[in-house]
Write a protein that binds this DNA or RNA. Structure first.
Length: 292
DNA sequence: TGATATGTTATCTT
DNA sequence: CAAGATAACATATC
């Protein structure tokens, strides 16, 4: 779930919330969720928060970084010390208003809180139901493995048309698999791959090297566009999705989905019906009428 | 009970 | 060896 727009939303909010704060302590409630020495980050101030692909990177003074991957069910929730009551109320409201589930934040820490990072003014809670996510202490950003990531999918400067043409021409894999491959393009996950292919009117099953120049151009525009729209709407928190903003609030881009999770429903552009297949083990949604 | 679930990677299989 | 497919990670919901 947390794909580029969700991580970017969290990054922006964390950058505002944490900049200048000092880490006063770290509680690791689940060993698998934290890799590194607490001593390396204690008493260090936050310089800023950046992002690479779907990884949030908290830069600390002294050349130390906290890299965080939320994987499928991770959340980062920040409670400012002096606003605790206000934020708790917002979370409480959310539970009352909507169906209660494992992903509603409620009181903190909760059952799924794996790591708590305390600052001189507030606490950051890392919640993760399925424990696939992690926080790592890094001395060198290269330890993330730069070669593991292609250009950022929302950055038209590095994600160029020429680059896109080149990587697509090199493989016969289904186009959806290719645009979700972080080594080739960083940030696109299942939701936005489905949505971008719909916007570009291209079937997810099409072999990558079969796309015409026109289609490649259209798909690149659709990817950039859908990611920017989703960032504007602070990401998506569809029904069973864990993603929350750092306040505990949902994103709203799920209200703008055309095909994702809509099997059996009407296509928003024609009279066809959205179909679901499995591609690379993932739910894949498309309109067989609009997408060619 | 079986199918499904957003990400990533190890491990098959071809 | 490379490309492609699938299982695995841990847990919950429908």
């Amino acid at each position: 779930m947390p794909e580029l727009p969700e991580v970017e939303t969290i990054r922006l909010q964390l950058d505002q919330a944490l900049k200048g704060l000092r880490i006063t302590g770290v509680e690791v409630l689940n060993k698998k969720s934290f890799v590194g020495e607490i001593g390396d980050i204690k008493e260090k101030r936050v310089i800023g928060v950046t992002r690479r692909a779907k990884i949030t990177i908290i830069e600390l003074e002294g050349g130390v970084y906290l890299a965080i991957h939320l994987k499928l069910t991770g959340q980062l929730i920040f409670l400012e010390e002096n606003q605790k009551s206000k934020i708790s109320k917002a979370c409480f409201f959310e539970i009352k208003d909507q169906k209660e589930g494992p992903f509603e934040v409620g009181e903190l820490p909760n059952k799924y809180t794996r790591v708590i990072i305390s600052f001189d003014k507030g606490k950051l809670f890392f919640n993760d139901l399925r424990i696939f996510g992690w926080i790592r202490v890094l001395r060198d950003l290269g330890d993330l493995g730069e070669d593991k990531f292609g250009p950022e999918a929302n950055d038209e400067k590095t994600f160029t048309l020429d680059y896109f043409k080149n990587i697509l021409a090199k493989t016969k894999k289904p186009i959806k698999i290719v645009i979700m491959d972080q080594k080739k393009l960083a940030g696109v996950g299942n939701i936005y791959a489905n949505e971008a292919l719909f916007q570009a009117k291209i079937l997810p099953t099409r072999k990558a090297d079969s796309l015409t120049e026109e289609e490649v151009k259209k798909l690149r525009n659709s990817i950039i566009n859908v990611l920017k729209e989703a960032i504007f709407h602070k990401g998506s928190s569809d029904r069973d999705e864990a993603y929350r903003q750092i306040t505990g609030e949902k994103g709203t881009y799920q209200n703008y989905f055309s095909v994702y999770g809509k099997a059996g429903q009407k296509c928003p552009k024609c009279q066809g019906t959205i179909k679901r297949i499995v591609l690379g083990g993932r739910g894949t949604f498309f309109c067989p009428n609009c997408q060619k």
